[in-house]
Design a protein around this nucleic acid. Structure first.
Ligand SMILES: [Mn+2]
Ligand SMILES: [Mn+2]
Ligand SMILES: [Zn+2]
Ligand SMILES: [Zn+2]
Lengths: 148, 148
DNA sequence: TTGTTATTGAAAATGATTATCATTGCCAAT
DNA sequence: ATTGGCAATGATAATCATTTTCAATAACAA
C-alpha cells in the first residue's frame, strides 16, 4: 500500500498509534537538515497547526529517538536537538560545533576509517569491560569561520 | 616557593585571586577519579565546610574549565560533570557510558590510533570548513555488565 | 595599612524538561 | 460500520539544574 506515508508502518501493530501530531512532527523534521530543538519544532509547527502542544513534541521526539527514527544531539547549548536518522551508510556523520555561536556542521569525512577504529575499539572495550556498545558519539568543538 | 599548593600559581597575577573555596573545590576534584556533578561536589564539601555555597561551586567549575584545569562532561543524565584534566599525554582518555545506570568508564585504549585519525580529520575539516578546532569528544554508549 | 575590586553566598529568577490528569481519538475486534 | 479499551494528547503544574542579582566580604597590589 504505497503512499500511506513513509513512517506509518513503523507505528501500526506495535501497540503504537499513527496520529496527526506524530505525522506533523515527522514532516517538520523532514523539512530541513538542521538540528532542531523541541521548542524550534514547536514554533515551526505552531504557525500552521496551533493545536499541537509542546508536551507532545517532547514525548514524540523521545519516542522517535527510542525507535531509532531520529537522533538526539546534546551539544552544550542548553537544549536537546534532533535530526532525522538516515538509514544508509552514507548518512552516518558527526558534528563540528562552534562554541561561540552554536553553529553545527555535519561532516562525512574519514567515516570509513573512523568506523574501522570504532569497531576495533568497541571490540576491545566490550571484552575488557564486559560492556555492550550500542552507539557512539564524536564531535569536534571550535570556532567557525565567522566567530574566530 | 614549594608547598604553596599545586594550582595557586595559575591564579596569582592574572587578575584572579587564590581563595579558600577554590582551593577546597580543587581538593575535592583531586580526591577521586570519579566524574562529579556540581551538586555532588557541593555535598562532599558541605560535610566539613558548610560555608561554601553551591553558586560558588558552579562559578568555580566554569572558571576551571575555561582555564583548562578541569574537563566538563555532558553525558545525558541531566547534570554536568567534571573531572580533573591531566597534563600528560597518557591522561587523555574517553568514556564508555551505560545508558541504563549512568556508569562511566574511562578508557585509554587505541588512543594513539585515535589521535592520528583525529589529527587527520581535524586537518581536513579545518581546511574544508574554515573552522578552528580546539577540542574533541568521543563517547560510547551501551549497557554495562550489571545492566545488560 | 588601605583602597580597589574580584569573589562570595543567599535568595530569587530562569528555563528546559517531566509529571499529572481529565479528555480525546486510534484501531482491533466485533 | 460500531464500539470498547487504552494509547495519545494538551493544559497545567511541578521539578530541577543552572543563572542572575546584589549586598557583603576578603585578596592583594600599592
Ligand atoms: Mn547532523
Ligand atoms: Mn574520565
Ligand atoms: Zn560560530
Ligand atoms: Zn549500567
Amino acid at each position: 500500500m504505497p503512499g500511506k506515508g513513509k513512517w506509518q508502518n513503523r507505528f501500526s501493530g506495535h501497540g503504537r498509534r499513527w496520529t496527526m501530531p506524530r505525522e506533523t512532527i515527522l514532516q517538520q523534521l523532514s523539512r530541513t537538515k538542521k538540528h532542531q530543538s523541541p521548542k524550534e519544532i514547536f514554533s515551526a509547527i505552531n504557525k500552521f497547526n496551533p493545536g499541537i502542544g509542546l508536551t507532545t513534541i517532547y514525548r514524540t521526539l523521545e519516542l522517535l529517538d527510542k525507535m531509532g527514527v531520529i537522533h538526539k544531539l546534546r551539544i552544550g547549548d542548553g537544549q536537546v536537538r534532533y535530526e532525522l536518522q538516515g538509514k544508509e551508510k552514507e548518512d552516518h556523520h558527526h558534528h563540528l560545533i562552534c562554541t561561540s555561536c552554536g553553529k553545527i556542521i555535519d561532516y562525512f569525512d574519514f567515516i570509513d576509517e573512523e568506523m574501522e577504529l570504532i569497531k576495533k575499539t568497541e571490540k576491545a572495550l566490550t571484552k575488557k569491560h564486559n560492556f555492550v556498545i550500542n552507539n557512539h558519539n564524536i564531535e569536534f568543538y571550535g570556532l567557525c569561520e565567522k566567530c574566530r
